[in-house]
């Protein structure tokens, strides 16, 4: 499988703060990829540098182009919804559609309108009069009607209530994703997107902590609810994270065979959220 995003040694600092610390990033074509990290980890900087909105050192190739050379050309193949990237408040809904239809060669207005007809968004209202959830719905309607190879979403559901959030991801998966398109979503609300993802990237303090597809994650990582009498054995296998769970201890292991782990207790694949915590905590313990 070819990679639609290929980045090497990305480095970006703001004064003394290093936002991206020589990271490598590759996203396979067709993946639904989650870029997951705590606030301030460098998610937005990483995404912005991939689409030419941030001056960054290193080599980047997105959809066959260097985003720093001609952002506007890249934007014919890439769509972007920013975390705070609100649509301009003074535009009317119909004017947004007029504008995108005129400037974007791959926009299909009828598709956007079909999507909007399933919502309660009135086309003659100005954006400032829409609720936050409606603005996101509108932006999604526009983006879903543009035939691009990569969709970049930076915390797209930030500040929305649970109904809008669920609907957003349902639509994305059911109405947009077709197996060829690549979606890159950043979030710190892991639980919401974990069932969607086929690829996982963890980022913390400007460094990539994990970059793997979900199938590999299931093979490499395992969580074991260790029996009380096997704790010493478990400790000896270098767990990356230990936590207390219902009076028992739950160990997270990296790269230890399941056959060995099954002797210690109940083995299962950790959820993305648990793995995230394990990797972040593990990382921090190491650096202390």
């Amino acid at each position: 499988m070819t990679n639609i995003v290929e980045a090497r040694s990305l480095y970006k600092s703001f004064g003394n703060f290093v936002a991206l610390d020589n990271i490598d990033l590759s996203i396979p074509q067709g993946a639904i990829s989650g870029l997951i990290g705590p606030n301030g980890a460098g998610k937005t900087t990483a995404l912005k540098s991939l689409i030419g909105l941030c001056d960054v050192d290193g080599d980047i190739c997105v959809a066959g182009q260097d985003p720093r050379v001609a952002r506007h050309k890249l934007m014919e193949d890439v769509c972007f919804i920013a975390d705070v990237g609100i649509l301009p408040k003074w535009l009317k809904v119909s004017q947004v559609l007029d504008y995108v239809e005129a400037v974007h060669p791959k926009f299909d207005r009828s598709k956007a309108q079909k999507f909007l007809s399933t919502t309660e968004i009135p086309s003659n209202k100005r954006i400032k009069n829409l609720s936050k959830g409606m603005v996101t719905q509108l932006h999604l309607a526009i983006v879903m009607a543009i035939e691009v190879s990569l969709l970049v979403l930076d915390e797209p559901t930030l500040g929305l209530d649970i109904i809008y959030r669920k609907e957003f991801y349902d639509r994305l998966l059911n109405d947009y994703y077709d197996g060829n398109r690549t979606i890159l979503i950043s979030t710190h609300q892991v639980e919401e997107i974990e069932t969607l993802l086929s690829h996982l990237v963890f980022i913390d303090k400007g460094k990539i902590v994990l970059n793997a597809n979900m199938a590999d994650v299931a093979e490499i990582y395992a969580e074991v609810l260790v029996d009380a009498d096997k704790l010493l054995q478990a400790d000896a296998l270098n767990p990356i994270y230990i936590r207390n769970l219902l009076g028992k201890k739950s160990y997270t292991f990296e790269g230890v065979s399941r056959a060995v782990l099954e002797q210690l207790g109940d083995v299962h694949t950790p959820t993305v959220a648990d793995l995230f915590v394990a990797k972040m905590r593990g990382q921090r313990n190491e650096s202390v």
């Binding site: 689409i51 909105l53 952002r71 506007h72 050309k73 934007m75 014919e76 769509c79 972007f80 919804i81 920013a82 705070v84 990237g85 609100i86 649509l87 301009p88 408040k89 504008y99 995108v100 400037v103 974007h104 060669p105 932006h139």
Partner: peptide
């Protein structure tokens, strides 16, 4: 108002 991120996402 940060809407620049929308304008910049257009070709």
């Amino acid at each position: 108002d940060m809407s620049i991120l929308f304008w910049q996402s257009m070709p």
